[in-house]
Amino acid sequence: SADYSSLTVVQLKDLLTKRNLSVGGLKNELVQRLIKDDEESKGE
Rank of each mutant, 00 (worst) to 15 (best):
S1G: 12
S1Y: 14
S1E: 13
S1P: 14
S1W: 11
S1L: 14
S1Q: 13
A2F: 14
A2S: 12
A2W: 12
A2G: 12
D3N: 07
D3S: 06
D3Q: 08
D3R: 08
D3E: 08
D3Y: 11
D3K: 09
Y4W: 01
Y4E: 02
Y4F: 04
S5F: 08
S5H: 15
S5V: 09
S5T: 12
S5M: 12
S5P: 09
S5C: 15
S5K: 09
S6P: 04
S6G: 12
S6T: 09
S6M: 08
S6K: 14
S6A: 10
S6L: 08
S6W: 07
L7T: 02
L7N: 04
L7K: 05
L7A: 05
L7C: 09
L7S: 03
L7M: 15
T8F: 00
T8V: 03
T8G: 07
T8H: 05
T8S: 11
V9A: 05
V9Y: 04
V9H: 06
V9P: 06
V9R: 04
V9I: 13
V9F: 04
V10F: 05
Q11W: 00
Q11R: 04
Q11Y: 02
Q11F: 03
Q11M: 08
L12F: 00
L12M: 03
L12H: 00
L12I: 06
L12Y: 00
L12Q: 00
L12P: 00
K13C: 10
K13F: 01
K13P: 00
K13E: 08
K13D: 03
D14H: 08
D14A: 08
D14E: 13
L15V: 06
L15P: 01
L15C: 06
L15W: 04
L15A: 06
L15G: 00
L16R: 00
L16D: 02
L16V: 03
L16N: 01
T17Y: 07
T17Q: 14
T17I: 13
T17F: 07
K18S: 09
K18M: 08
K18G: 08
K18N: 08
K18H: 08
R19V: 02
R19H: 03
R19C: 04
R19G: 03
R19Y: 00
R19T: 02
R19D: 03
R19M: 02
R19P: 02
N20K: 09
N20T: 04
N20R: 09
L21R: 04
L21I: 05
L21A: 03
L21Q: 04
L21E: 02
S22N: 10
S22W: 05
S22C: 10
V23C: 09
V23R: 08
V23Y: 05
V23T: 15
G24E: 15
G24M: 10
G24N: 15
G25K: 01
G25L: 01
G25H: 02
G25R: 00
G25D: 03
G25F: 01
L26W: 06
L26S: 15
L26R: 11
K27W: 09
K27V: 07
N28Y: 09
N28F: 09
N28D: 15
N28I: 12
N28L: 09
N28M: 11
N28C: 11
E29W: 00
E29F: 00
E29P: 00
E29N: 05
L30T: 01
L30M: 11
L30F: 02
L30Y: 02
L30S: 00
V31C: 06
V31K: 04
V31E: 06
V31R: 05
V31Q: 05
V31L: 08
V31D: 01
Q32C: 11
Q32V: 08
Q32E: 13
Q32P: 01
R33A: 06
R33P: 03
L34F: 00
L34N: 00
I35K: 09
I35V: 10
I35T: 07
K36L: 10
K36P: 01
K36N: 11
K36W: 10
D37S: 12
D37Y: 14
D38Q: 04
D38T: 04
D38G: 04
D38S: 05
D38P: 01
D38Y: 05
D38V: 05
E39Q: 13
E39N: 11
E39I: 12
E40M: 13
E40W: 10
E40A: 12
E40V: 11
E40I: 11
S41Q: 13
S41F: 10
S41N: 14
S41V: 10
S41L: 11
K42L: 12
K42N: 11
K42E: 10
G43C: 14
G43L: 13
G43M: 13
G43H: 14
G43F: 12
E44A: 13
E44R: 14
E44N: 13
E44S: 14
E44T: 13
E44L: 14
E44I: 14
